[in-house]
Amino acid sequence: MNQDLVLQTKIGHEETLQKFLHTIGRKGVIKEPCAVRLQRMNREEFETRWAGKCRALQIDANWIEPSLKLSQFKLFATDMDSTFLNLETLDEMASFVGKGEDVAKITELAMQGKIHNYAESLTARVKLLAGADASIVDRLIDRHIRPNPGAEKLVSALKEAGIPMLLVSGGFSCVTEVVKARYGFTHVISNELEIIDGKLTGRVTGPFGTPIIDGRGKISYVSAYALQHGIELSQLITMGDGSNDIPMLEAAGLSIAWHAKPKVRPHAKQAFDFAPLSGLLALFS
């Protein structure tokens, strides 16, 4: 079956998309958030002649089945840091206490998959925060938590469709619970920062003292939720950007590598480097 080509870019950049359509000699209706669907495109020709220019103009190009509908899916799961939220929460907290650069270096290596043990890398980063006042968590929540563009529209559409939303994070419950409440996620799974006498101890565990949630933990939780509710993994949509998201990106019927590291992109069905989170909705007929 021939696939449709969905072109998307940043919200408000309709002119860029329109110019590219003119360049390739095609017409199409640009719809929200900033996307156009083209039918009967020659994939080989597009990839050879136009894919490079498309990327240079900051336009995402994804090939999708023409009949794909949101109603085919029964569950949505997303990573939090640098996917749903426009920040890395641990890096941000570390910056408050002068440890930002040290923590960010380890974070980047972990997200690129150069540190293969996520639990080890998380433990090393949190250890750098030992002794910090727990008020840095409140400071983060009060001033710095912002979703990526398109989050509200995506959440609204998923709720309207009756699709449960899971926030699946290697971050911390003190943040994920706030995000859950603000945006109406059905459930969250994340790690726990140890705080004693108002200070971070530098220790971290999984929920209720269990092993740290890593890539294996994420897909285990999502799979268990799906099984409990009679949902096939082919009916699952996932989004993520880091190496610890790879297992759930590979398992899902539809997965989006969101502004992802090069190692992550091949493991997802689609990739967004410029489209907003609500760009997911443009993939459906």
Rank of each mutant, 00 (worst) to 15 (best):
V97F: 11
V97D: 07
G98S: 07
G98A: 03
G98C: 05
G98N: 02
G98V: 04
G98E: 02
G98T: 06
K99D: 06
K99V: 09
K99H: 09
G100P: 08
G100W: 02
G100R: 01
G100D: 11
D102G: 08
D102S: 13
V103E: 03
V103D: 04
V103S: 10
A104Q: 07
A104N: 06
A104K: 05
A104W: 02
K105P: 00
K105W: 02
K105A: 09
I106C: 12
I106W: 07
T107C: 10
E108D: 15
E108P: 02
E108Y: 05
E108N: 13
L109A: 15
A110L: 11
A110N: 11
M111G: 05
M111D: 00
M111S: 01
M111H: 00
M111C: 04
Q112A: 13
G113C: 05
G113P: 03
G113I: 05
K114H: 14
K114E: 14
K114Q: 15
K114D: 14
K114M: 11
K114V: 12
I115Q: 05
I115G: 02
I115H: 01
H116Q: 15
H116V: 13
H116Y: 11
N117V: 13
N117T: 13
N117Y: 12
N117C: 14
Y118C: 02
Y118V: 04
Y118E: 03
Y118D: 01
Y118R: 00
A119L: 06
A119Y: 02
A119P: 01
A119D: 08
A119S: 14
A119C: 11
A119E: 09
A119N: 11
E120N: 13
S121I: 07
S121A: 15
S121H: 04
S121L: 12
S121E: 10
L122V: 13
L122W: 04
L122P: 10
L122T: 13
L122E: 00
L122F: 06
T123S: 10
T123P: 04
A124D: 01
A124W: 00
A124C: 04
A124E: 03
A124S: 12
A124H: 01
R125E: 10
R125V: 12
R125Q: 05
R125Y: 11
R125G: 07
V126L: 07
V126M: 10
V126I: 03
K127E: 14
K127M: 12
K127L: 12
L128K: 13
L128N: 07
L128I: 12
L129N: 07
